[in-house]
Design a protein around this nucleic acid. Structure first.
Length: 573
DNA sequence: TGGGGTCCT
DNA sequence: AGGACCC
């Protein structure tokens, strides 16, 4: 039943209500098609260094390295200009930059606190936030995007920040969701900056893997959106398999032993041989990662659960997984009243209002009749004559190249156009169409541009221009927040943190640290006292937190991620 | 090569 | 608990 194909997903639950619910055997049916998730990845710039610069603004102008033992674990951008880099030995760093200021960073307390504030802030917009280390967060904003699309005219949309491999991009029906995602990401980055004084990057894509990868394309304090058809370009731009998140040192070594070096090598390697080395599940997983497929859900780690909702009676087996997910999502959403924000999206480098786009390829859309993944299992497809397979190819996919792909990837491609990860392998402008595999060619597969197709106007854009549901509610518990400190536009478009920031670890996320620092001292003190008494939504795990009650249970209940699950990180469902 | 984290077996 | 992955 569960080949690990992109099945039983929860990402399109937002659309599920519109869909017919039928049950065929045990497979969940998805009818609609275009539902792709919108995933955000936030990555704070040199996080430890930023925290130290907030604690001591005098450091801002100096080259700063954060030291743990004999390592510079991170450093600010001033230091980077002098040749210092992350994970460099202190000796080397000082050699490169004798004026380097060193701050010990072995005690993580401050970093941890700040880190959770960021996560909390993000959670106040949308509960689906997953932490990755102290300085990264994933967010699934699919529902938020859907809601905005409903009451925003398409002409009011634009891409905030960069669009991967494009200088500018006009918004149309096909890319509107990504555009909204980029606007949301910009607002959130602005919120992180104006309330916490931290800058960072964001990536917007249709899955976690790609959001993470694309977020790093423009580095400090910028954001980048990936359009699905640019997936292959992104993947092939990675130099070395180690750059694929989810492939670590051990796996890399094994892959090397098999003679694989590039992303493309892995994409094309015969699955059976891969299975011998890694087992079926892992083999498929890593091969899919190499192709840019990742159906792993955004799994909130913290305890957003405040109320009763988790202790529900054992799930009725008549419920599909998706049903359960849907419920949980609604309940967690409903406890999030939000205030309207005055924050305006940052415009960044992208000053251009969208003009004319290079006639954009569109995301292929399949007919509804092609039922999702219902057993796209090998058996059923591998027997299919090639002609049949080919005839099902999404527009723009080069059949020649298609045939080079491992079978499960082919299946993925075919079925994915109804799934969330659709259009993944929709490789950009092609030219290598009819080639034979050239072992020396380490570039990636190329597909033709998808031909224009009738668009799915499943998304209707109404009038109602200014609709911003993003609120700045910090924690539902707080009420003293009527003071609109946080709503002050503390910055202009260029995101330079005020050097005067008074670091106050107790000020709530929606209070601008700068504005706070301008208040009379006694007022500050009074506010702080009040805030300190208030509970955080996300409790910071104590150092010796035993967490007797398993985080796992919390997770699987909280998000209802299919309790089984393979790899947490980018695991297939 | 730190000082953490997560999940799977 | 050990091993893989992540930062």
């Amino acid at each position: 039943m569960d080949t690990d194909e992109e099945g039983d997903n929860d990402w399109d639950r937002s659309l599920e209500s519109d869909m017919l619910e039928t049950t065929e055997g045990s497979s969940t049916n998805r009818v609609t098609s275009i539902s792709q998730r919108v995933i955000l990845h936030f990555d704070l710039d040199c996080f430890y260094a930023q925290v130290e610069m907030i604690r001591n603004p005098a450091l801002r102008t100096k080259p700063l390295g954060i030291q743990q033992k004999y390592l510079i674990v991170t450093c600010n951008y001033v230091a980077r200009e002098h040749g210092v880099s992350k994970m460099m030995s202190v000796t080397d760093a000082v050699e490169k930059c004798p004026q380097l200021v060193l701050v010990k960073g072995e005690d993580l307390t401050h970093y941890r606190e700040m880190s959770y504030k960021v996560t909390e802030l993000l959670m106040s917009y949308c509960p689906l936030v997953e932490r990755l280390g102290f300085d990264e967060n994933f967010m699934d904003v699919t529902e938020m995007v859907e809601r905005r699309l409903k009451d925003t005219r398409i002409s009011d949309l634009f891409f905030s920040g960069h669009v991967y491999k494009h200088e500018c991009m006009a918004v149309d029906d096909e890319n509107a969701r990504q555009a909204v995602g980029s606007m949301i990401a910009a607002e959130m980055r602005q919120a992180i900056f104006s309330t916490l004084g931290l800058t960072g990057c964001a990536g917007i894509a249709h899955n976690k893997l790609l959001a993470k990868l694309v977020s790093g394309t423009f580095k400090p304090n910028q954001q980048t959106t990936l359009l699905p058809y640019s997936t292959a370009e992104l993947m092939s731009s990675l130099r070395g398999l180690i750059k694929v998140p989810g492939i670590g040192y051990k796996t890399l070594e094994k892959l090397k032993a098999l003679g694989l070096e590039s992303v493309r090598d892995l994409q094309l390697y015969p699955l059976p041989d891969l299975v011998k080395e890694f087992g079926e599940v892992n083999a498929k997983r890593i091969q899919k990662l190499a192709c840019g497929f990742d159906d792993s859900p955004v799994t909130p780690a913290g305890p957003p659960q405040v109320e009763s909702d988790i202790c529900e009676p054992a799930a009725n087996s008549l419920f599909t997984q998706a049903d359960v997910l849907h419920k949980e999502d609604i309940s967690s959403n409903s406890m999030k009243p939000v205030k309207h924000t005055l924050i305006s999206p940052t415009q960044e480098l992208q000053t251009q209002p969208p003009l004319i786009k290079p006639k954009s390829p569109r995301q292929p859309v399949l007919e509804h009749s092609q039922v999702t993944n219902m057993n796209t299992s090998e058996s059923c497809m591998s027997n299919a004559p090639e002609k049949t397979l080919r005839s099902k190819l999404p527009p723009g996919v080069d059949p020649e190249v298609f045939e080079l792909l491992p079978e499960h990837i082919q299946m993925e491609l075919i079925s994915s156009f109804q799934n969330e990860d659709s259009a993944q392998l929709n490789y950009g402008p092609a030219d290598t169409s009819s080639e034979v595999v050239d072992p020396a060619d380490h570039s990636t597969l190329a597909f033709n541009q998808p031909a224009p197709e009738p668009c799915e106007s499943a998304l209707n854009y109404n009038r109602n221009p200014a609709s911003h549901e993003l609120g700045k509610a910090w924690s539902s518990a707080q009420s003293s927040m009527e003071l609109d400190f946080g709503l002050v536009e503390a910055t202009d478009s260029h995101d330079i943190p005020p050097a005067t920031q008074a670091p106050q670890s107790d000020i709530p996320a929606n209070v601008d640290p700068y504005v706070f620092s301008q208040l009379p001292v006694d007022v500050q003190r009074e506010l702080l006292t009040e805030w300190r008494q208030q509970k955080s939504v996300l409790k910071i795990p104590s150092k010796h937190s035993h967490k007797t009650s398993n985080t796992k249970d919390r997770k699987s209940t909280a998000k209802g991620s299919q309790g089984n699950n393979i790899l947490k990180y980018f695991k297939p469902n």
